[in-house]
Design a protein around this nucleic acid. Structure first.
Lengths: 341, 341
DNA sequence: TTGTAGGCGTTATCAT
DNA sequence: ATGATAACGCCTACAA
């Protein structure tokens, strides 16, 4: 139907209907300058009756602004991405911006192609979610055009990129101190699903929080050992210094709890279990009422978009951002006082 | 920096650099008409050296096409959405289209607002993911402008909307017949997480597939009973006619298996367990090597985008679409022959 | 085959 | 305060 679609109503139509010139109509709508009250009213009426909506492409051409944020995922594989999209969308839409979402699906050539695509689209800003590889060549054209780029990742300090990272230490520290306060001294972190991350800030957060409260920590992962979740739990509880708490990702807590029970132990009387939920999906998917360290990725998305919009308006901030207050400790029925030995 | 950003290179710049007129440059790039070989080469060189990329806003204004698909989620809460976005993005990007992704976050007013937003953006088509409520008022302006709308949902037959739905019966039927072939006669479907759906096509698929192979089926859900997963499994296995197979969503299989074992029964010798994985995340998150009914939501996304792009080109199809071949049965270590009674 | 010119819908500059 | 007019960057009749 692309051939014969009826021409949508334009500003000229509105102006004619209202009996004014296009410039007056435009002014009445943008509010740049004052127009006479009755004329403004007539324009508004014409807009209503004709169902006029300004053509963003034309506006973009004229204003050299597309009101579009180009969001580039290296890969779209985690529910966290959903929250980020949702959060960014919420903030962007409030500011009348659109979100052009893309994923390279882990492919390097795609990644390059998407940068070019966004350049052609003249996005007002670039948002890179967990980017990989060398970005400098990709970012250069945007930098030249004054298009800000904001990225979420752990390592700051990329030239031409404002790096935003989530500081989840608060919730982790809260959890550790709550557990320590209940007498726990030995924790096992099962870095299996969402809790598996490359050696980075979040891993540090956990280590440091444990150390700060004198909690001995063991980290187990099926990636290295090739063991199943159940085998890991079994060997841990049979070890010389068995943990009194187990921390696992939200997609594993159910199985962890069931595995503990399969060994004839009770949760939380014999072993406490804590979930790590970094997405709203995770918070729902984990066993209900499990104690959890929650991370608000939706809010993280909002904040990233806010930073980006701000950068469009006033230029990039002078330094990278570490966003706090996104994580919190949420007690639940799966934790209790440490058992006596 | 919005104020003083350097003007990006335009087609005129390219034409000057190549020593030709804009129209020649344009033709050399769009390939609409033939241009002399050497001129075409010079234009290409100019494009390279200047780093020219056509301004899509200008092109969109001229062509009355924005090369943008407006994707509207009623809510962004399931990993399936991720696959859909990724799949739609893959197909759209191949066709040089962008994906403007939005979510109403379950809010009715937002929903309305987003339709208006997309209308202003002059998206070339609308894609509605599991839309709710009365659409006719929202769709009318788009219909008037000849903008096709494609939606994914279970119930077809919305005027002005091409409804696409996933027919997952094949994979389910395969699974049932494989299980029946192993001697299973009693299955319990735990409709807890992803497997909980309102009474609809998919529920029918499961019922019909079970009936077709003479499998007795019981459906249990925590939503109605208020029981935990573990309690459901326990009561099921203690019932008069205990199931020899349990079907559960991917986020529950781990816990189901562990719960079965906690009762002193073995998987799969005493009870077989099958997972339902409707997303790539689910396929990864479920216990490894579990037998599963997989649904390829990524491909579903691709297909939806393909239908949409086709509708832009040639108008909406004459009838709604039921897409097959997206589900398949994937055996695994969690199933075995039915135990003798 | 190439160049000139007009227009897509909007905002901004300039007169009035 | 309002209206005519000139861009924004691109494509495409039309004329050469």
């Amino acid at each position: 139907m692309a051939t014969d679609r009826p021409r949508p109503v334009t500003l000229l139509d509105v102006a004619n209907e209202a009996g004014v010139s296009v410039s007056t109509a435009s002014r009445a709508l943008t509010g740049a300058r004052r127009v006479r009250g009755d004329l403004e009213r007539r324009v508004q009426e014409a807009v209503e009756s004709l169902g006029y909506r300004p053509n963003e492409a034309a506006r973009g051409l004229r204003m050299a602004r597309t009101m579009t944020l180009g969001v580039l995922f290296h890969r779209l594989n985690s529910p966290v991405s959903l929250d980020l999209i949702d959060g960014m969308g919420a903030a962007a839409h409030e500011a009348r911006y659109s979100l052009a979402v893309t994923s390279a699906r882990g492919d390097k050539a795609q990644y390059t192609s998407l940068f070019r695509h966004f350049y052609g689209q003249r996005v007002d800003a670039l948002v890179l979610i967990w980017p990989r590889g060398d970005l400098s060549a990709h970012l250069a054209p945007f930098a030249r055009a004054g298009v800000p780029a904001v990225g979420i990742r752990w390592e700051p300090g990329e030239p031409g990129l404002t790096v935003v990272s989530a500081d989840t230490s608060a919730g982790i520290a809260e959890a550790m101190s709550a557990l320590a306060g209940m007498g726990h001294t030995q924790i096992t972190v099962i870095a299996h699903g969402v809790l598996w991350v490359p050696p980075n800030l979040r891993r540090n957060y956990i280590d440091q929080a444990a150390e700060a409260v004198g909690m001995r920590l063991r980290r187990r992962t099926s990636r290295e050992s090739g063991q199943t979740l159940r085998e890991i739990v079994t060997s841990e509880l049979a070890s010389e210094e068995p943990p009194t708490v187990i921390l696992a990702g939200y997609s594993e807590v159910g199985e962890v709890i069931a595995s503990v029970r399969a060994l004839g132990k009770r949760v939380p009387e014999d072993v406490s279990v804590v979930s790590f939920a970094d997405s709203r999906f995770g918070a729902v998917a984990q066993s209900e009422h499990a104690a959890a360290i929650d991370v608000d990725s939706f809010e993280l998305g909002r904040r990233i978009a806010a930073v980006t919009l701000e950068a469009i308006e006033n230029g990039p901030p002078s330094e990278d951002l570490r966003i706090r207050g996104l994580s919190h400790w949420s007690p639940g029925v799966t934790i209790g006082p440490a058992p006596r030995r």
